[in-house]
Simulated scan of single mutants.
Amino acid sequence: MSLEAMVTAVERWIGTSEPNAIQQWYRQRNGALYNGNFAWCDATITRAAVEAGEYDAVCFGTDFAYTVAHAARFKAAGQWHAMTNGIKASGIRRGDIVFFDWDGSSAIGNIDHVGIVTGVSADYRYVFTVEGNTANVCARRVRAVHEIAGFGRPKYKTPPKTTTASSSSSTPKRPQVSLSRLVKAFKADPPKKGTPVSYALVEVVEDALVAERLLAKRYADGHAGTATRSAYSLYQQRLGFTGTEPGGDADGTPGKTSLARLAKAHGFDVVA
């Protein structure tokens, strides 16, 4: 088996919502403590590791549901890399098990979430992942450095051919944000927290708004809700647009001109 088998095993769960077979499987292995709708991001990694024949490499022979414990195990094995020097310098790459702290620290004790890396953008601005239990589904995500606490590097049976960070052959070199899909997401009613996102690359735009200091990091969750639309309206006003009423030039709905400016400044491309 190999790194690629592990990535494939996680990818096969894309689209899974909850409650689900991963939770049921984990409950059967680990008992009534996991009854109910428990957080299953690390259970997804555990299940995939078993399916891929990489259970010892990824999980050290232990089932994990608690992300802090999993990251600590990587550290104990000398396989932990804190995200303190940026994406490029860290060397994060396809197959790494990536851990997140939504408050932006690199402290293992603060970790909130986990996924697997599928690639890194050519400009090293973003890490591409697949994650279980991200807004209650298993989905591909695009992550910025401030969300990543660090990563564990499993000793796969067949190691990768290269040790340098690279993007997946099936992943665009830069995030490709669809203007039409983005506008649709921004015009929808703000989804309730915890519901599936309508367009995952909303988070790329949100990360750009965070970098512009217009949006708090806690709202960069892929939901084009009130906070995100307000932040985008502020960005439009910063560009000199007027009219904040619905349908106005600065109403918080992305337009071709404003999105192109944001994309140029923050490393993504705009497509139809």
Rank of each mutant, 00 (worst) to 15 (best):
E4D: 15
G15V: 12
N20R: 12
I22G: 09
Q23A: 06
Y26F: 15
Y26N: 04
W40V: 04
W40R: 03
I45K: 02
A48C: 10
A57F: 01
C59M: 01
T62Q: 11
F64D: 02
Y66T: 09
A72V: 03
Q79R: 14
H81D: 06
H81Y: 15
I87S: 02
D96A: 09
F99L: 09
I108M: 04
D112M: 08
V114M: 02
I116G: 07
I116F: 06
S121T: 14
Y124R: 11
F128D: 13
E131P: 12
A135P: 04
V137T: 15
V137N: 07
A144R: 14
H146T: 09
A149G: 06
G150T: 02
Y156R: 01
K161N: 04
S166L: 13
S168A: 15
S170I: 12
S170K: 13
T171F: 11
A185H: 05
K187S: 06
K187N: 12
L201V: 08
D207L: 15
L215R: 00
D221S: 10
T228Y: 11
S230L: 06
R238N: 04
L239Y: 02
P246G: 07
S258M: 01
L262Y: 01
A265D: 09
H266A: 05
G267D: 10
G267F: 02
V270N: 00
A272H: 14
